[in-house]
């Protein structure tokens, strides 16, 4: 008997678990980003960001997070390739007129690529100066020296094009999650006729809270915190 991950449902299990793991990461990330709105010149945000740079988190959790992204992206690519092959080369001349199918559900890979493109810019903007080159400026609170992460973020979000990019990235993620959230529970088998409706409502609400949350913070930073 082949292993679980050699099967279609097993591959989907990896997609859903990595996806849900990334969802929890988004919740933590958005919570910290909200601190960008505390009007204290960035002290609260810097202290929280400094906490996230603790060795335990940096060397313990970050590799797990990267692993989550990598599994999700690799399996997304494998599944998409296999699915295109299963669809076959012959295309329907009369197209597809099936109604009531969510657009997001048919474009998860494209939406994922939008998220990946955004992720790359994000890593170059913040992750590299903060965690690799340590090129970011320092600030001291109560004798503790740390990166002035707030200044870095604030400066980045003073540029309109980057704010626009962040808004587009957040929307791509939102649409990805309007389908992804309930889909993950369907994949895990935690769904039936009643729960499918519930997960869909919860998922769409969650997706918009996350997406609009990230987008609004970027816009507010640009408009009112410069």
């Amino acid at each position: 008997m082949s292993t679980i991950f050699g099967s279609s449902i097993g591959r989907k299990l990896l997609m859903s678990l990595s996806g849900l793991f990334l969802v929890t990461f988004l919740i933590v990330h958005l919570s910290i980003n909200l601190l960008l709105l505390v009007p204290d010149g960035g002290e609260t945000f810097n202290i929280a960001a400094n906490f996230m740079a603790l060795p335990l988190i940096k060397y313990g959790l970050q590799p797990v997070l990267f692993g989550g992204f990598i599994i999700h992206i690799i399996y997304a690519s494998i599944l998409t390739l296999q699915n295109n092959k299963a669809r076959g080369n012959a295309k329907y001349a009369s197209g597809n007129n099936t109604k009531d199918v969510m657009w997001a559900s048919k474009n998860m890979y494209v939406l994922g690529i939008t998220v990946t493109a955004f992720l790359v810019v994000h890593i170059v903007d913040f992750f590299v100066p903060l965690q690799i080159t340590h090129g970011a400026a320092s600030v001291t609170y109560d004798g503790v020296e740390m990166h002035n992460t707030y200044a870095l973020v604030n400066a980045a979000l003073s540029e309109a094009w980057r704010v626009a990019l962040y808004v587009v990235g957040s929307l791509g993620l939102t649409i990805h999650l309007t389908h992804g959230f309930w889909s993950a529970f369907q994949t895990l088998g935690f769904s039936n006729n009643i729960w499918r409706k519930r997960w869909t409502v919860i998922g769409i609400a969650f997706a918009w809270i996350i997406g609009l949350g990230f987008a609004a913070i970027a816009i507010l930073q640009f408009a009112f915190y410069q």
């Binding site: 279609s8 591959r11 597809n96 099936t98 199918v101 559900s105 889909s183 369907q186």
Partner: peptide, 10 residues
């Protein structure tokens, strides 16, 4: 060789 379901619901 059937594909992997992505829950489109079609």
């Amino acid at each position: 060789g059937f594909g992997n379901c992505t829950n489109t619901g079609a």
